[in-house]
């Protein structure tokens, strides 16, 4: 019983991390109609930045949360630069844009290897959340519960942003019909940059928040990108609710899969994606078939 309870909490925690990662991925996909293959790299880059800020390698040592925000901002700027300088060169050529994001992901991965080396970096749990919570026989690390709370808060904030603000209305219009949005006078190209930066920042933030659980290592990008892909194929592109539900589902399947059939855990992820592709190609909450 305790085992299952702990596994459930771990699944929700991982689902929360996946949501932070895939919400931006899904919005970028919905708006620009491209899967951003640098998304795993942005997650990893954020984690490395965070680890550096926290570890005090730059003479200054930052608090965990300050470091997370700083990492998110730096990677958001990096994302905006990619969008402005490279993707902007290929307007409307989605296939070429995807290949460019793929190329950048290799460059980022190699750059991180050069700078931070091949050994994993462990990031300490932030001080306020270092303890444990006891519930009957089960013991939960406080940090994992904290991650769930943060993910829930950011989900709510994103929902408010999309549902209640002018910017959100423009993004939704762009996701539903980019051509129509252009016609009614929304500056879609500016929107691309904003959403790309937002998505990059969220992914980087997820990287830092995930670091105490996952640690930071070369190949983290390649571990995370497929998960974001599966979440979005499952939940449907461009839908916040879709990435939320998809993340939780994948969080459960991934953790239970690891525990029950460790050798095939990665493969089990494939099953919900398979079902969705066959039964509902636009995803559970998607508005269009990619």
């Amino acid at each position: 019983m305790t085992f299952w309870l702990v596994l459930t909490v771990n699944s929700i925690t991982f689902g929360g991390l996946l949501f932070l990662l895939s919400a931006g991925f899904s919005l970028i996909f919905g708006l620009m109609r491209i899967p951003n293959l640098t998304h795993g790299s942005l997650f990893m880059l954020g984690a490395y930045f965070g680890a550096t800020f926290i570890g005090g390698y730059l003479t200054l040592q930052f608090d965990f949360w300050v470091a997370a925000v700083l990492a998110a901002l730096s990677v958001a700027v990096f994302g905006a630069v990619i969008e402005r300088l490279l993707l902007r060169q290929l307007p409307g050529q989605q296939m070429a844009q995807v290949l460019v994001t793929l190329g950048i992901s290799f460059m980022v991965a190699d750059f991180c290897l050069l700078l931070w080396g091949g050994d994993p970096i462990n990031v300490a749990t932030p001080q306020g959340l270092a303890g444990f919570v006891r519930a009957g026989p089960a013991v939960f690390p406080l940090y994992r519960l904290g991650v769930i709370a943060i993910a829930a808060a950011i989900a709510a904030a994103l929902w408010l942003l999309l549902d209640r603000t002018r910017l959100g209305a423009m993004i939704r219009a762009g996701v539903d019909d980019p051509d129509m949005a252009r016609v009614v006078g929304i500056r879609v190209s500016q929107l691309f940059t904003i959403v790309f930066a937002l998505g990059a920042g969220l992914a980087a933030f997820a990287g830092v928040v995930g670091a105490p659980i996952l640690s930071v290592y070369p190949g983290l990008d390649q571990d995370m990108l497929p998960l974001a892909l599966v979440v979005v194929i499952l939940g449907g592109s461009g839908s916040l609710l879709g990435s939320f539900v998809g993340s939780i589902i994948i969080g459960f399947i991934y953790n239970f899969g690891q525990a029950l059939f460790p050798e095939l855990a990665y493969f089990v992820l494939f099953l919900p994606m398979l079902l969705v592709l066959i039964l509902r190609p636009q995803g559970l909450f998607g508005r269009f078939v990619p």
């Binding site: 899967p35 497929p226 992820l269 494939f270």
Partner: peptide, 16 residues
């Protein structure tokens, strides 16, 4: 799928 969807699915299958 075709186009971008095809890229995504093949990428996911390859990673799996």
């Amino acid at each position: 799928a075709t186009g971008i969807g095809f890229i995504m699915i093949t990428l996911a299958l390859g990673e799996i």
